[in-house]
Computed example of a mutant assay.
Amino acid sequence: MLHPCLLHLTLVVAALPGSLKTADGIPIDSMTNWQLDNDAGWRAYYRGDLTRAEERFKSAIELVSPYQKADPRLLARSYCDLAQVFLGQSRYDQAEPLAKWALKVREKYPRIPIETIYQNLYVLAQIHCAQRRFPEAEPLLRRALVLQEKSLGREHAALATTLDDLAWVVAETGKLAEAELLYKRALAICTKKLQPDDLDIAIISEHYALLLRRLNRLTEAEWLEARAKTIRSDAAAAANRVVPVERTRGSTP
């Protein structure tokens, strides 16, 4: 079975009996092998084997590159996936053009899922953030947040990560008052939607505390830092000292 993300492509087998091509002219075996390579790439990525992930995504790209004129969306998918690998390897000069090309392609197709555009915007923003190019990252994160709100609602827990990253970027461009509002909103969502000992609450509390220290509001900063410390201690104890996977600055959701 093809991956659910392919459903929006309406890749229906042509009507002629025995046809081995999709309606977009991509051979069925190329489609199948592309999916296998892409899935293998993500499995490698999530276990931290970026070298293997790069190999599999490049193989996927080779399979669908000959058909990009007919429909470039599969190539855009693999380009954005490979861009995430390059981001993880700090190969920003290689990641950026891939993510930009993928976003340009995806924005041309009205039926591309909102989640796909969001993910592409977020990856490109993270590439800019990693290079401290905050004025370029800011509009991308703002667009990503709008898409998340439209797709998930204004209080979905997933918004907290985007708000947190946008607050950091906004603070780095000097808009400290707006950054504080974004951090407050992120924490309010986390407090309402997550368990009290969720690690995301600790992470955002620590980030907000850094801003408060810049504003010389030390008492508030210390309270948030103490809150984060308690959450981390409780989480570690509950997990019997098993360290959870933590989102770090510059990572993608």
Rank of each mutant, 00 (worst) to 15 (best):
A228C: 01
H3T: 06
E246W: 07
D234Y: 02
V105A: 07
Y208K: 13
G25Q: 12
Q94D: 09
F57C: 06
I204F: 12
T32G: 02
L211R: 14
S19V: 06
Y122M: 09
Y79W: 14
E149F: 00
M31Y: 07
R73N: 10
T219E: 06
E155N: 13
Q68P: 00
M31I: 10
A70E: 04
W34Y: 02
E220G: 00
Y79M: 12
A186F: 05
T248I: 04
L176P: 00
Q68W: 09
V12I: 14
K100Q: 10
L141A: 06
R143I: 00
N216E: 11
Q131H: 05
A125F: 01
R217H: 12
A137T: 05
A188M: 09
Y46Q: 11
V245M: 07
S78L: 03
A202N: 07
V12F: 02
G153T: 06
V170K: 13
L215R: 15
E180Y: 03
L176I: 04
E222G: 02
K150L: 05
T10L: 09
N240H: 12
K58N: 11
L9V: 01
L121I: 02
C190T: 09
T51Y: 09
T51L: 10
K229S: 08
H3A: 10
D24G: 03
D37K: 15
A221H: 10
T252M: 05
